[in-house]
Amino acid sequence: MALPKRIIKETERLLADPAPGISAIPHEDNLRYFDVIIEGPNQSPFEGGVFKLELFLPEDYPMAPPKVRFMTKIYHPNIDKLGRICLDILKDKWSPALQIRTVLLSIQALLSSPNPDDPLANDVAQHWKENENNAIQTAQEWTRKYATA
């Protein structure tokens, strides 16, 4: 199966002109599989953290969304303890006009603005709603503990 030209183009652009705070590097043996690193955005509980993710482009990409998962533990109402991400554009709101770059930017934005009303990790979301300051503190602790290089 040949690699579609769009994937090659996207990869070239990701490597040549990476988005700030984001790096995505494809595996040598499987060019559909990327090692991603996202830096925790400023003024968020994840500031200073370096989060590892894996990204996989399925066979029917770009008609189907890429599969993305956090490898680093993170205390976030929309990310569960297995690293799965609750983000609409990764599911039903996917559009073939979106790209790896836009997906990763959206995930970075999700770190800046957690959405406890559409939770994936229920206990974290509950914590966030009941005592936001305390929850943010926990998130900062987790970031220090797990996400500092």
Partner: peptide
Amino acid sequence: GCITQALEVSPGCPLCR
């Protein structure tokens, strides 16, 4: 070709839905 394929998966415009 692209839009035909995309509309088979989801009926919205890939750019503005």
